[in-house]
Design a protein around this nucleic acid. Sequence first.
DNA 1: GACTCGTGTTACCGCAAGTAACATGCACGT
DNA 2: ACGTGCATGTTACTTGCGGTAACACGAGTC
Lengths: 218, 218
Amino acid sequence: MDTTQRTDQQRSADRRRRELLEAADRVVLRDGPQASMNAIAAEAGITKPILYRHFGDKGGLYAALAQRHTDALLSSLRAALDAPAERRRRVESTLDTYLAAIEARPQVYRFLMHPAEGSTSPGDQAEQGFDVGKHSAPLLRRMGEELAQVIEERLDVGPGTQQLARVWGHGIVGMMHAAGDWWLGERPCSRAELVRSLADLLWGRLAEAGDKAGGPGF
Amino acid sequence: MDTTQRTDQQRSADRRRRELLEAADRVVLRDGPQASMNAIAAEAGITKPILYRHFGDKGGLYAALAQRHTDALLSSLRAALDAPAERRRRVESTLDTYLAAIEARPQVYRFLMHPAEGSTSPGDQAEQGFDVGKHSAPLLRRMGEELAQVIEERLDVGPGTQQLARVWGHGIVGMMHAAGDWWLGERPCSRAELVRSLADLLWGRLAEAGDKAGGPGF
DNA sequence: GACTCGTGTTACCGCAAGTAACATGCACGT
DNA sequence: ACGTGCATGTTACTTGCGGTAACACGAGTC
């Protein structure tokens, strides 16, 4: 059994797969998260079963698509995080990178932010019990873990650093995501302002702020 | 046209509506967010069309259900936010209240955290274009706005307070949500530890922390 | 008793996910 | 040259869900 032949087949399959993913990408970009398998197949010039042979089910396609974008975004974020500058500047640049990305392709990120959710396979009966948690998108999870790792590697906050880093990683990512989502919907200010405000929050300006006169304080 | 009769009808309709919502509640508690209209109707001892007469469509039922829980949760949060204690303690208590809630009824909150999303009505063709943004759950939005208002009312951070308050409101809520969601899935620590860590983050411990030796810093 | 009106039903449509089962083209071992 | 695999493609189907139309019963009103 020579491996060259198998490699050939695999290569062609991989190329096809990439083509299909690009078609899917186009459709998602156009139709948002509710893009149907039929529509994607049509865009790719083929029919549904091929998609299913390549990706198993919709979740599989979703996962593959998500990974592409997640990888791309994460590498941008890593670059921002690794740039040679003081910490505050790096944090701001990272926030801005994320926001620029969701601003440029909202439909895609709207798609990415959802869990599998459409996991109601017909024959399925078991396993719908209590798989609680992990309802949030893989993208968020991955970003959270990634940031956690960066924090843990580079920051020294004494004992319990590891735990703290993970909490902070997910927390910061969540903050970024929610604020970004809200901002995208209402556009209440410029991206730069948003970035500054969020960085201020992380820099403890909330804790430092003085109470307003008259109230019970905050 | 006497109004007493109409009031009677309305009252009975309202009671029925509440019964239906409680049935829906039970189903969502059991089946999670993918609870079907059929299942809910069955739980209520009736059939689908009645649900549709009461709530219009699934989004309507979702909205009604969401409002109940959102109201309940928000009033708890407000209580925590209004308690007579120093700021840090109030923030921690608010975080803990939220986390306790999602811990107690994960399925419900999993349900609440989703947008309408199932908005593919059959006859619908228009309006699926670019309604970008507002993809996140009403619950998150409402919590964000609420917190923003509290911050704006009670905090003095100089000019631009209003804008800052809204950004912070949504950001903090997002942080809480994402961290909570992750925590619920992995249970890496106790609720109290999580609360402390998040409060530390808001208190600027990230900015204060020293760089670890050797790395490029963070 | 006919009229209406709210409550309930069955039976259906449209659509999307996912699956058989069948067809075709291309590389091979003999 | 010829069958044998095997990937690629198709059409046609099943299942399940959101949503609706059309009909049926029961209680008050004139």
